[in-house]
């Protein structure tokens, strides 16, 4: 059994402005084992990106703990850590971004982009640097002769490879991929997903794979967390979640997947109404305004996120009694 590399415990993030307080991430907890891929799905605005950014410490969580098992065998709480130690940990936790156009500085050559993390962390000689960058470039399938070019010379897929190379060059152990393939075409998506999976095998990487595309998540993840309005409503091994969802929101989400087969007509479970305003979430179960199984209790009583089956967590009052439809 591989060790637990990351424990997210009751993490919340509140964005406050003068009047409104948006609880973008609301009391989220889950565990990640070394070498796993955790998929995080949900509609836009449900807090996926914010959660990912809390984990890589791009932003500070408002409360909660993010426990990370570092390479040296010690567990650090990334939330309460001094600057110097954080600098060391930063190398191990990296991120791949959604927008292949916004994530590369248009004023730097590919070589400068990939080597920047190295130059910031180590004192390397020019030829050592070059060697390292070249080897990582060929790992992600970039022709080393491209290193002198600027990002404007590349298509989305190639840019994403550059982004991956930059994230990999420090030998990280945990990578948060925020919609890393969403902006790409299917065929390029397939290339990048294959690349990510190959790299995972080679370097024993752990991924947190954020996406709104359920079929991609199903393909790449070992476990999946479903988020709604900042809360994690279900967390389970992939197959279990897709076959036997326990949360009505997951069921609706799965039914909306458009299957790439004209002979299978999809039968969507309609979700009533719109997503509530995150600044002013409903009482009780956040999903009750749109849930077709809603009962009186759901409107008033808060739900807790509990383990209903081994490894299968869900936040629903009626999880025991409902018999929900999965796909597969």
């Amino acid at each position: 059994m591989p060790e637990t590399i990351l424990t997210v415990k009751n993490v919340s993030k509140v964005f406050s402005s003068k009047k409104v307080h948006i609880r973008a991430v609301n009391n989220v907890s889950f565990e990640v084992k070394r070498g796993e891929t955790i998929g995080i799905v949900g509609e836009s605005g449900c807090g996926k990106t914010t959660l990912g950014r809390c984990i890589v410490r791009a932003i500070d969580a408002t409360s909660g703990e993010i426990l990370y098992l570092a390479e040296d065998g010690k567990v650090y709480d990334l939330q309460n850590i001094d600057k110097k130690t954080l600098r060391g940990i930063r190398k191990e936790v990296q991120m791949i971004f959604q927008d292949p156009f916004a994530s590369l500085d248009p004023r730097m050559t590919v070589f400068d982009i990939i080597s920047e993390p190295l130059r910031a962390n180590f004192k390397l000689k020019r030829n050592e640097l070059e060697e390292k960058v070249k080897s990582i470039a060929s790992k992600v399938g970039l022709n080393p002769s491209y290193l002198k070019r600027y990002p404007h010379a590349f298509s989305g897929g190639q840019r994403q490879r550059i982004g991956i190379a930059r994230a990999l060059v420090l030998n990280p152990r945990l990578i948060v991929c925020d919609e890393a393939v969403s902006a790409l075409d299917v065929s390029v998506q397939a290339q990048v997903i294959n690349l990510l999976m190959d790299l995972q095998k080679e370097f024993k990487l752990t991924y947190i794979f954020i996406s709104h595309d359920l079929s991609v998540v199903e393909h790449i993840s070992d476990k999946v967390g479903v988020m709604y309005l900042g809360k994690m409503v279900e967390y389970a091994p992939t197959e279990e979640l897709f076959r036997n969802p326990l949360h009505p929101y997951t069921e609706a989400l799965l039914s909306a997947v458009l299957i790439a087969d004209p002979t299978v007509k999809n039968t969507r479970i309609p979700l009533e109404g719109e997503i509530p305003n995150p600044a002013n979430p409903p009482s009780g179960c956040f999903f009750h305004t749109r849930c077709r199984y809603c009962i009186e209790k759901c409107k008033t009583e808060d739900v807790s996120f509990v383990e209903k089956k081994p490894g299968h967590f869900v936040a629903c009052h009626r999880a025991d009694e409902l018999n929900l439809r999965g796909i597969v």
């Binding site: 890589v56 791009a58 600098r87 930063r90 190398k91 936790v93 990296q94 991120m95 971004f97 959604q98 927008d99 916004a102 994530s103 590369l104 500085d105 004023r107 730097m108 982009i113 920047e116 993390p117 910031a120 962390n121 982004g163 930059r166 994230a167 420090l170």
Partner: peptide
């Protein structure tokens, strides 16, 4: 707010260098 600035921060590049270089 650009992603590439965040990427540089995550890579451990110092604030001063981020200002100068990006």
């Amino acid at each position: 707010k650009e992603d590439y600035v965040l990427a540089a921060r995550l890579a451990g590049v110092s604030d001063f260098k981020i200002i100068i270089r990006h």
